[in-house]
Design a binder for these strands. Structure first.
Lengths: 225, 225
DNA sequence: ATCTCCATGTCGTGC
DNA sequence: GCACGACGTGGAGAT
């Protein structure tokens, strides 16, 4: 990884056009060739960048001490950086990162809820996770205590688009006489009021999931029986 | 801005839990207090981060030469970084950035299309941009050559959620007897097949916009009259 | 503070 | 390769 701190101007032409007036900034060149330009605020987002795969060409220093970096990719996007007054230019070998281990995302919720489908209703049974349909997989397909099918859409945060998604699935599933009528359950750790209202309007039930409880139930050390 | 290159392990507990095993990484502390941790690949995304506003507390060096950074925010999210073998620790004053100037985003498309609404149909007239409704503004409200209202949703890339959005607007607008019937046009630089299919199913027309042409038409230097 | 929607979204995954 | 959905989405603007 190469870290440069310098005054620079930047022009990007690609999916849009953009320009950065001259200012002192951080330039980061990574081992995969990618380049990003950071200001002194916002942890996450660089002001400008080029994602890999891409190629950086560095010009000779001109009579005013300027250097031009031209970063291009296959799609014809182009990032041109003009540097001057370089304060820092450091290269460090970082090696391959072992990567981030995550816990608590939607996949976990789905796993836990599938194992404990009775959380949603007594006597309910799991048909399968990722139940395939023509327009994509339903997170969980289950049957209620009467044997009727229930399509469950799981979100970490339940918002309107999740309800729309489930609505599309239900519309399709209910066209299948072997399945219809299919009930819908919108399950999330948190459900926004607007989503709850829309769900009610569509005849979709809502269920708020408690990740800690689901995980606790799943944790053998916490089981009483 | 403070740049540190060091071996570190990272634990995050907040919206999810995550862990980074020990490896050499770049740590960036910005003037707004935000912290991000970068590996040597992917230009855009840090492995881990804490967005401002947040507070960084740095421990004393322990007997093994380790330092612990604890970054917390108001919401109770917590990022704990254990550093050792610090290779670089550099601070640079960057100042406030003048910011990015953009050209070619949805706002521009909307502006240009509003000026040239006849692109969508001969004899069409603009009612207004950002036409207000109870559930949010419609990008463009127009009238066709028969005087019928047309709601136009503009996207850079037309996907399903854009069609859903327009559908919600149309549902609402068509309840107003002073407006109904309201036609819908889904306009984008590129429309995904699934979105096109859904739009057709909902009786919504699609229009592919050419940004260069719209801009060219708007550019006084290119006008012939 | 909350809600909404855009984004050069990025990133993984399944086809 | 394309398409779809999740993301600690982030970030900006309006209510």
């Amino acid at each position: 990884m190469r870290i440069v701190i310098a005054h620079c101007t930047v022009d990007y032409a690609g999916r849009l056009s953009s320009h950065l007036p001259e200012a002192k900034r951080l330039l980061m060149v990574k081992a995969d060739g990618s380049v990003s330009i950071h200001a002194d605020d916002r942890a996450y987002k660089p002001l400008n960048w080029m994602s890999p795969p891409c190629v950086l060409k560095e010009s000779e220093r001109d009579e005013d001490g300027r250097v031009i970096w031209t970063v291009t990719n296959k799609a014809g996007e182009r990032l041109v950086i003009t540097l001057q007054d370089v304060e820092l230019d450091a290269s460090h070998e970082l090696g391959v990162d072992p990567g981030l281990q995550k816990d608590g995302v939607e996949a976990h919720l789905q796993e836990l809820l599938a194992e404990q489908i009775e959380t949603l209703g007594s006597g309910w049974t799991l048909v399968r996770r990722e139940y395939p349909t023509a327009i994509g997989p339903v997170d969980i397909m289950a049957r209620d205590s009467d044997g009727a099918h229930v399509a469950v859409e799981i979100k970490r945060r339940g918002e309107i688009d999740g309800v729309e998604q489930l609505t599309r699935y239900l519309e399709l599933l209910n066209r299948d006489p072997l399945l219809a009528p299919v009930r819908g359950v919108f399950a999330a750790q948190e459900i926004k009021p607007q989503a709850r209202t829309l769900a009610a309007d569509r005849g979709i039930e809502c269920a708020v999931l408690d990740y800690e409880v689901l995980r606790g139930m799943d944790d053998p050390s916490s089981r009483l029986f």
